[in-house]
Amino acid sequence: MDTGSRIYVAGHRGLVGSAIVRRLQALGHANLITRSHRELDLLEQAAVRRFFELEKPEYVFLAAAKVGGIHANDTYPVDFIRDNISIQTNVIDAAYRNGCNKLLFLGSSCIYPKLCPQPIKEEYLLTAPLEPTNEWYAIAKIAGIKVCQAYRKQYGFDAIAAMPTNLYGPGDSFHPENSHVLPALIRRFQEAKENGLPEVTIWGTGTPRREFLYVEDLADALVFLMQNYSEAEHINVGCGEDMTIMELTEVVAKIVGFEGTIYTDPSKPDGTPRKLLDVSRLAQTGWKAATCLEDGIAKTYAWYLAQIKSNK
C-alpha cells in the first residue's frame, strides 16, 4: 500500500473511520475513497457490488458498523445482528470479487466470553458463553472474523481482522442513551457542571475493569497492520492496561471540573466484570499505543466542547 493506492474507508464518518482517514492523509495518502450512508447503503448488496465494480479499491478498511452501548445492544438485538452481518458480508464479498489486494475487518473485544481469563488472548474466542447484553453484536463480529478466514481459506483473499478494546476520542457519539461509557460520562459530568448539580449517579457498581484506547492510536495501529500483518487469526489491539469504571469516572470528573459527589446504582447492569486484552502478539509486530488515558480524555473533552459551541 503506497501513497497512490486506491483506499476505501467504509464508515469514514464514524469514530474509527474518520480517524483512519486522518491518519492516512497525514501519511500522504491522497487517493482515498469514501461514501456517506446516503450515497451508499452498505445493507444493499447490489449497490455495494456496483460501487466496487466502478471504484475498484485496492485496499479496504471495513470500519462501518451498527454500534452502541449496553442499553442500545440490549434494546435493539435484531438491528445489531442483522445489520452488521449484512454490512460486513456485502463489503468483504464485493472486495474479493473486484480484485481488492487486501481488506482489514474491524471487530470488537466484546467477541470474547463474558468470564474470560485475563488478560484475553486471541485463542480464547468461542471458548465460553458471551455477555448477554451485547451478544447480538458480538455474534455478528465473530461471523465477520470467520467470513474473513473463509475467504482466505477458499480463495486466498488477504482479509485480516483486528479486535480493538474500548475506544474513545474525537468523533465519538455523546448520545444521552446510546453512547459508550466514556463519552456518556463526559456528557453527564459536563451537564452536571453547567447546571450546578451536587451529585451524579453512574450505572452499576463501578467495580468492572475496562481498557480504553484513544482512537487516533487505533487508526495508527490499523494502518500499521494493513502494511505489516497477514494472518488468518484475528489480532487484538489495545494498550494493555485497565482500570475500574469508578476510577475512570473520577478521572473524567477531574478533567471536566465536576466537584460534586459520585454515586453508583447497583440496580443497573455492570456488563462483563473485566475486559483487558492481551496485546503481546501486537507488540511482537512492533506497534505500541502512544497516548495516555488522561491526555486522550482531555483531547476528547476539548473536542466535545467545540462541538457544543458549534451547534449553538
Score class of each variant (00 low, 15 high):
177 E>D: 13
186 I>N: 01
113 P>R: 06
188 R>G: 06
143 A>C: 13
177 E>I: 08
141 K>I: 11
141 K>V: 07
105 F>N: 15
149 Q>H: 10
138 A>L: 10
194 E>Q: 14
188 R>H: 03
129 P>E: 01
150 A>V: 09
138 A>G: 03
203 W>A: 14
148 C>Y: 03
191 E>W: 02
109 S>F: 05
172 D>Q: 15
129 P>W: 01
163 M>V: 04
174 F>L: 00
158 D>P: 01
109 S>D: 14
180 H>P: 04
185 L>P: 07
200 V>Q: 03
162 A>R: 03
206 G>N: 11
115 L>R: 13
116 C>N: 14
174 F>E: 01
204 G>I: 02
109 S>K: 02
113 P>K: 03
148 C>D: 04
120 I>H: 08
168 Y>M: 07
168 Y>C: 04
207 T>C: 01
155 Y>A: 11
152 R>Y: 05
198 P>Q: 12
110 C>Y: 11
187 R>K: 09
174 F>S: 01
146 K>Y: 02
121 K>Q: 14
203 W>Y: 14
115 L>K: 11
171 G>H: 15
120 I>K: 03
110 C>A: 09
173 S>K: 08
166 N>M: 08
202 I>N: 14
172 D>M: 11
124 Y>R: 07
119 P>T: 09
162 A>E: 06
138 A>Y: 08
209 R>H: 07
184 A>V: 07
183 P>F: 07
187 R>M: 13
206 G>C: 05
152 R>A: 12
184 A>I: 02
181 V>M: 12
161 A>C: 08
134 N>G: 15
115 L>I: 00
147 V>G: 00
192 A>M: 01
193 K>M: 07
194 E>S: 14
161 A>L: 03
152 R>C: 05
206 G>V: 05
193 K>R: 11
159 A>M: 10
179 S>I: 10
151 Y>V: 15
205 T>Q: 09
111 I>K: 06
126 L>V: 09
141 K>A: 13
194 E>A: 13
112 Y>G: 05
193 K>N: 00
205 T>Y: 04
110 C>Q: 04
109 S>R: 03
208 P>K: 14
181 V>H: 10
151 Y>S: 14
160 I>C: 12
178 N>D: 08
204 G>C: 03
209 R>D: 00
177 E>C: 06
164 P>N: 06
130 L>C: 09
190 Q>F: 07
153 K>R: 11
184 A>K: 02
105 F>L: 06
112 Y>S: 09
133 T>L: 12
208 P>A: 08
164 P>E: 07
157 F>R: 10
161 A>N: 04
122 E>W: 00
136 W>A: 01
203 W>V: 10
149 Q>L: 04
186 I>E: 03
188 R>I: 04
110 C>N: 04
184 A>R: 02
135 E>Q: 15
184 A>L: 14
202 I>T: 15
114 K>I: 00
112 Y>A: 05
132 P>F: 14
129 P>T: 02
130 L>S: 07
182 L>H: 01
148 C>A: 13
166 N>A: 12
117 P>G: 11
128 A>K: 13
